[in-house]
């Protein structure tokens, strides 16, 4: 089953590279959906079927639909891709890419220090996750609900068209 993980990981990394290099926002969004779906496959391989389902439903479904709606409302034309390509000159990305690669090499070095812990094969069912979420983590679940409520109120307040800004 290991090839399953490595193929999905390759697809995820390639799709993510495409996301951060595309000029058109909708193309980047479609690649991001591919990346999230391949990460969902990896969750399935790691024995977390409930999390794989959540990844598809909430990340690739709901959050990406939000992005699609906002891109539709902004109504960006071909002018925006021209501006994007003028923003992406080598002088802009050469510095960040070097520094990020240095950090990534350090991280890979640290991960290479520990020698191959094998992952156990069993799956963790949704039942166990639910018992844990509403048992010891009940306070965290309540805090997440408050955070979501604050997000709803904030998004409503910011997204509303106030009358005085129509000049």
């Amino acid at each position: 089953m290991d090839w399953f993980f490595y193929i999905a990981a390759t697809v995820a990394v390639l799709a993510t590279v495409m996301v951060i290099t595309r000029l058109n926002a909708v193309h980047a969004l479609l690649y991001l959906i591919v990346s999230l779906l391949s990460v969902a496959l990896i969750f399935f391989r790691l024995g977390a079927p409930f999390i794989a389902a959540l990844e598809v439903i909430i990340y690739a479904g709901a959050i990406m639909v939000l992005f699609v709606f906002v891109i539709m409302m902004l109504n960006l034309g071909p002018r925006s891709t021209e501006r994007e390509s003028s923003w992406l000159r080598p002088g802009v990305w050469l510095g960040p890419i070097t520094l990020t690669i240095i950090l990534l090499i350090e991280l890979i070095y640290i991960l290479g220090q520990s020698g191959g812990d094998p992952l156990p094969a069993g799956t963790i069912e949704a039942r166990q996750v639910g018992i844990s979420l509403f048992g010891p983590y009940l306070l965290a679940a309540e805090l997440a609900s408050m955070l979501l409520l604050a997000g709803v109120v904030g998004a409503y307040h910011l997204g509303r068209e106030s009358p005085e800004q129509r000049l």
């Binding site: 089953m1 290991d2 490595y6 990981a9 990896i42 991960l111 812990d117 094998p118 992952l119 156990p120």
Partner: peptide
């Protein structure tokens, strides 16, 4: 052979 944890963390 089982999948090593480091490969997941590497991804």
């Amino acid at each position: 052979p089982a999948l090593p944890m480091e490969h997941g963390l590497l991804l």
